[in-house]
Simulated scan of single mutants.
Amino acid sequence: MVRRTAALMGVILVTSRSFSDGHLDLVQRAAQAGHRILRGPAHHDLEDLRSLLHGADAWIAGTGAVTDAHFAAAPKLKVVARYGVGTESVDLGAARDRGIPVTNTPGANADAVADHAIGLMLAALRFIPDGDRRVRTGDWGVRRGRELGAATVGIVGFGRIGQGVAARLSGFGPRVLAADPFLPDDVVRARGAEPVSLDDLFRTADVVTLHAPGGQQLVDADRLPGMRPGTVLVNTARGDLIDEAAVAQALRDGTLAGYAADTLDGDTAAHHSPLLAPDLADRVIVTPHLGAQTTQAVDNMGALSLADVIAILAGGDPAHPVPVPLAEENR
């Protein structure tokens, strides 16, 4: 039997906090394939990562930015595997120019995030966190909520997570609308929703849940006045999908009855967000980016990202490549 030496082992830099934190021992799985896991900070600060990137053959990246400067600091890098679905934090053009394939983990956390979206809807409609806080101060006064089954729910973005939300809503019985420019109407209907335009969805829904990619602003001061008074807005996607100051004002003037989110714009750097103002605490629910944090999702994301890394380091093709933009001169 030929023994692998340390010199032959690939170094896989991992900057996702939860990698191999579920039931699967992915560190051991990497070792069995002849590779070593090297941990790095999730914030992706280049100065903190520079020495780690220099020796990395592969990078399983969290949600932090992956820029051309990161690539320049990693002369041996053969692949970036996004631990999750979204790739807006990765400079795909720079990866293309340097010949570095990018992969992601489509569907790995869809069930977990869909579950969380439903949980946030119920929490906002029934004032669950506020009720818990008040009971702990001795206040047993009742705030009357609304039933999910009596609402019209609008799903913005009808990919795997949006469709998972629709499937779960079927047990509650609301009217379900969906806006997605990339899906034919018959597909939307077959998967449990009425296809509508984005504007019609925002005008009609009592509950709006966002499942669109980041890098765009869908809820702002222009759109909010056209929404139904008392709408509940749920965001388990990206913080930059909303104008936080405009949403805070809409909560104060009654346009929105509640905002429930798993993210803020800037996440942990957003502790000064206008949505965290004390006077909005009874109408705003924010969880710390835990929508995908289930044991099952962590195992799925880790296993898929590691499998693609191992395949590429062995000279094969990944199962989940991310399409990269064409070079400008080839368009």
Rank of each mutant, 00 (worst) to 15 (best):
G40A: 11
L218D: 04
L280A: 07
T15D: 10
V142A: 07
G141K: 12
H70Y: 10
M301W: 00
T63R: 14
G84F: 04
A179N: 02
F127A: 12
L241A: 11
L313M: 09
V324L: 15
F158T: 00
V79Y: 07
T105I: 00
V208T: 06
T294P: 08
R228I: 06
G40H: 10
A237V: 06
A108K: 02
V286G: 01
H320W: 12
V247P: 01
G138E: 04
A261Q: 01
P318F: 07
A58D: 05
T137N: 13
P225F: 12
F172Q: 08
A7R: 14
P278Q: 14
G315N: 13
D220Y: 08
D115M: 10
N330D: 15
I155Y: 00
D206Y: 03
Q293V: 15
H70S: 08
I118T: 05
D186G: 08
Q28T: 15
V113T: 09
T105F: 01
A151P: 01
T295H: 07
V165Y: 04
I161H: 03
R39C: 13
L53H: 05
A237K: 06
L53M: 06
G131M: 09
E328M: 15
D91F: 08
A178Q: 01
G258F: 03
L177A: 05
D200I: 11
A277H: 11
E47T: 15
P101Q: 09
G266I: 08
V176T: 14
P288L: 09
L256H: 02
A72P: 08
V142E: 00
A73Y: 10
L125Y: 02
I285Q: 03
L177P: 03
A166Q: 04
I37D: 06
R144M: 13
I118Y: 07
L49K: 08
S89R: 12
N235E: 04
I242Q: 13
V188N: 01
